[in-house]
Amino acid sequence: MTPWSAKITKRFSTVPANARENDFYAMGHTINFCIPLPDYTVAPYTYSIIDSHDSVNFIIEFEVLLEDKSVLFLEIKEPAEITLKSAREEADSQMRKRMGDLAPICPLDTLNGVSAFGTQLSFYTYDKHTHILPARIPPHPKLETDTAPLNRWDCNILEDEGVQRFQDLVAEIKRECEQV
């Protein structure tokens, strides 16, 4: 495992204790650290959430493009919201919708996405031949169901396991892209 550069570590260390979503937008730089340019472009995107509970709400996403095709994307949410069942369910739903939008143009057999609540990560894969993982948890018709449990965001990008999982994912994507 290669640890994060001092620049990335320093950037994360400046995040305040009461961090907001935008304090983590520099995670796009973390992707740049892992994926050498000019082969890839890391592009930030914003789009509104039509069915959001809020009157004005936007999704901030970073897409990694090989030429003009998405091979990885990262969606960032406010860290404190990870404790809210509704926020996790909305993040899970947004990831699945976005995967459905991007998968048809992805040049790889598998599209990868990362959902982040601050530094807590959940990894998603969309295998064009099968399905999206982690598997969707369907709501029960009568009982309250947590369709996006807290333990789905099971690693921290600043801890060894999170660094390793993220770097392994990027290495696999780069290997697959070399075959395209």
Rank of each mutant, 00 (worst) to 15 (best):
D23Q: 07
T125D: 12
C155P: 04
I132G: 08
D23R: 06
H29Q: 13
A19G: 05
G28K: 04
E159F: 04
Y124H: 05
H140P: 01
D168S: 14
I49K: 07
P139V: 10
Y45K: 12
L133I: 07
P104S: 09
H29W: 09
Y40E: 09
G162W: 09
D146L: 10
S5P: 14
K7D: 13
H140I: 08
T30P: 00
D109Y: 04
R96H: 07
S122V: 02
D168L: 15
Y124R: 04
I31K: 00
S5F: 14
Q120Y: 00
S55C: 04
V163M: 12
E161N: 10
T14R: 15
Y124A: 01
T125V: 10
Y25N: 05
A91Q: 13
E90H: 10
P36I: 03
S55T: 11
S86G: 07
A116E: 01
D23S: 09
V170A: 06
T30R: 00
R11S: 15
D92S: 07
T41C: 12
P138Q: 04
K69C: 08
N112P: 00
D68R: 11
E75S: 06
P38H: 13
D160K: 15
Y45P: 03
I49G: 04
M1C: 13
R20I: 07
I157F: 08
I8H: 02
Q164K: 15
T2Q: 13
T41V: 14
I157T: 06
Q167F: 01
R96A: 06
C155L: 09
K174S: 09
R11C: 11
F62L: 00
E75K: 04
V170G: 09
N22K: 11
K142Q: 14
E161D: 15
S13Y: 14
N32C: 07
E178G: 05
K97S: 07
N112E: 10
N22Q: 14
A43M: 15
H140T: 05
C155F: 08
P79R: 00
R152K: 12
F12P: 03
V64T: 12
K85T: 11
P104E: 08
E178R: 08
I49A: 08
A135E: 11
F24S: 06
T119S: 14
C177S: 14
H29T: 13
E172L: 12
H53E: 13
G113A: 15
I82C: 02
L65D: 05
A26D: 11
P79S: 01
D51E: 13
N112F: 03
R136Y: 06
R165P: 02
I173A: 10
L102Q: 06
G113L: 05
L102T: 05
L158H: 01
G162M: 08
G113N: 05
C155A: 02
R96N: 10
L158V: 04
P3F: 03
K142T: 10
P138R: 01
V64D: 01
R11A: 15
E63C: 07
N151Y: 03
Y124G: 00
Y47Q: 06
Y40P: 03
M99E: 12
Y25P: 02
S13H: 14
T30S: 13
L72I: 00
S86Q: 04
P149V: 08
N156D: 15
E75C: 10
S13F: 15
H131N: 12
W4V: 05
V114N: 02
M27A: 06
V56S: 05
P107F: 05
P38Q: 03
